[in-house]
């Protein structure tokens, strides 16, 4: 298999038809393949998230990472955009769902698409992945240490974020969850609660929890990076997507 790939920034319609930018990485060649939407972490549409997007292309997927902060800070450096988005209350849930829907549609419209699309998100993107998977027709979802899927945001919490407990019955797709046992947002108790709720709702899920890892253990440019958890996590994600995105979809996603 070739290791050649291309990567570029594209423009696509997101929520409310707004044109948003997204980083698209694609393996070379015309083989049909699944797609992966990467939802960036709270620090934004930065180099680390683009590296992750390219890694999914290297794994054989068409991968796309929309810039969720482009409306608040068009053209800004990722850290400045993240600061602006934080100060303005974060990304509204409805807008997030619309932007991910646009990114998934972009992937499915590619001539190489096999019709299947997975979503993966990190940090705040972990929660947003679960949110998207409750509302969109996707084939797999991976929550990497997303806070406030369960649990209660602290009093006076300034971001426009509530938990997703009332939406979990609508979860449409298998969920892989990767969590650090030293994390507090989400805490191990929060993950326990999510596990109980998904079980009660009869959902298909697979969780892995890592000792000696806290939040953001995939971020290899930060002190939070934990090589064991990250390497095992990548293997879990690769296997999960092979299972759920590897075979062509037989129904028309636009009509289902």
């Amino acid at each position: 298999m070739s290791d050649a790939l291309t990567a570029e920034t594209v423009t696509l319609p997101g929520a409310d038809g707004d044109l948003i930018e997204a980083y698209l990485a694609r393996p070379a060649g015309t083989t049909r393949r699944g797609g992966v939407v990467v939802i960036h972490h709270m620090p934004g549409w930065d180099r680390g998230m683009k590296e992750i997007t390219r890694r999914f292309a290297e794994l054989g997927y068409d991968a796309i990472c929309p810039n969720l902060y482009v409306r608040e800070a068009p053209g800004a450096a990722p850290d400045d955009a993240a600061a602006t988005a934080r100060a303005s209350g974060g990304v509204p849930d409805a807008r997030l769902v619309g932007d991910v829907a646009g990114a998934a549609a972009h992937l499915r419209a590619l001539p190489t698409s096999n019709g299947r699309v997975g979503v993966i998100g990190y940090c705040s993107g972990g929660r947003q992945t679960v949110l998207a998977a409750c509302h969109l027709d996707v084939d797999a979802a991976v929550d990497c240490y997303g806070a406030f899927v369960t649990g209660t945001p602290p009093e006076g919490f300034p971001l426009q974020v509530g938990n997703l407990v009332d939406q979990l019955p609508e979860l449409r797709t298998p969920l892989l969850g990767l969590f650090g046992n030293e994390d507090r947002y989400p805490s191990p108790d929060d993950v326990d609660e999510l596990e109980r709720l998904l079980t009660a709702h009869g959902k298909t899920f697979e969780f892995h929890r890592y000792d000696d890892a806290g939040h953001a253990f995939f971020s290899n440019d930060r002190p939070s990076y934990r090589v064991h958890a990250a390497n095992d996590g990548w293997e879990r994600v690769a296997a999960f997507f092979t299972t759920h995105l590897g075979t062509p979809r037989t129904t028309d996603p636009a009509g289902s």
Binding site: S124, F157, L159, Y185
Partner: peptide
């Protein structure tokens, strides 16, 4: 952890 907590003044 991401504390999310943000105070503006």
């Amino acid at each position: 952890m991401c504390t999310y907590a943000t105070i503006r003044t």
